[in-house]
Design a protein around this nucleic acid. Sequence first.
DNA 1: GACATCGTGTACCATGTAGTACACACTACA
DNA 2: TGTAGTGTGTACTACATGGTACACGATGTC
Lengths: 117, 117
Amino acid sequence: MATLGDFLRERREALREGDRSYSLRQVAQRIGVEPSFLSKVERGESPPPSEDTLRRLAADLGVDADTVLALAGKVSSDLQEVIRRRPTLFAALIRELKDLPDHAVLRLVREVRDGDW
Amino acid sequence: MATLGDFLRERREALREGDRSYSLRQVAQRIGVEPSFLSKVERGESPPPSEDTLRRLAADLGVDADTVLALAGKVSSDLQEVIRRRPTLFAALIRELKDLPDHAVLRLVREVRDGDW
DNA sequence: GACATCGTGTACCATGTAGTACACACTACA
DNA sequence: TGTAGTGTGTACTACATGGTACACGATGTC
């Protein structure tokens, strides 16, 4: 699995091929941090930004926020809140699904979405 | 919902009815923190302890660790890791289950546990 | 060849986290 | 009636978090 920094830098440089506004400086300005800070984040020299900053960054780069947060070692606060509201219930579920293959979990997601739960 | 401090204090004092070793000081010593710190935690005057400390405390008091962590505004690190490994997949699932009633989620847990997933 | 833009290096900082250390006053009880 | 144990108040601390501020040299572009 790529590191957060590599992932962000690769994505930004890819976008930059077709759009000069994806320079480190301009992205930094759009998401509201100092260029030097974003530079350090992309090179893994700084501990990852806050959830809010990561979300703005993910949005600017057009990538999935949950993925970026995961690479930063974080879990979205809205998911955490769902778990905190019913901790034993969701803990049981997640531990049950821990080792299931993707397709099985996905089947579950669809079942819930389509079924009359 | 009770606060962390109230929950811990009530539980400890209940245990203490039948066992003098559940004084604040003795519990503090068993779980490896200073009595003054545990006192502040029980009165909500200190930000919640670390996950490790909360786990030792939950174990000593014979209560569910996930519940205690939730009251402390935290989510068990092993659950977080499960999500971080497959962030989009688990994010989709959890958001799907967010507003489902307990019995529906529980049914899901059992289905997975018993079925051939 | 001037000027803008680029990424980076260095120094700094406010706030939060997760506690320790120790003295104090009260209660229990033998 | 002393002494052992109880909960609490005050002061302090080391480290992590999440950044800012600004100068620097390289690059590109007109």
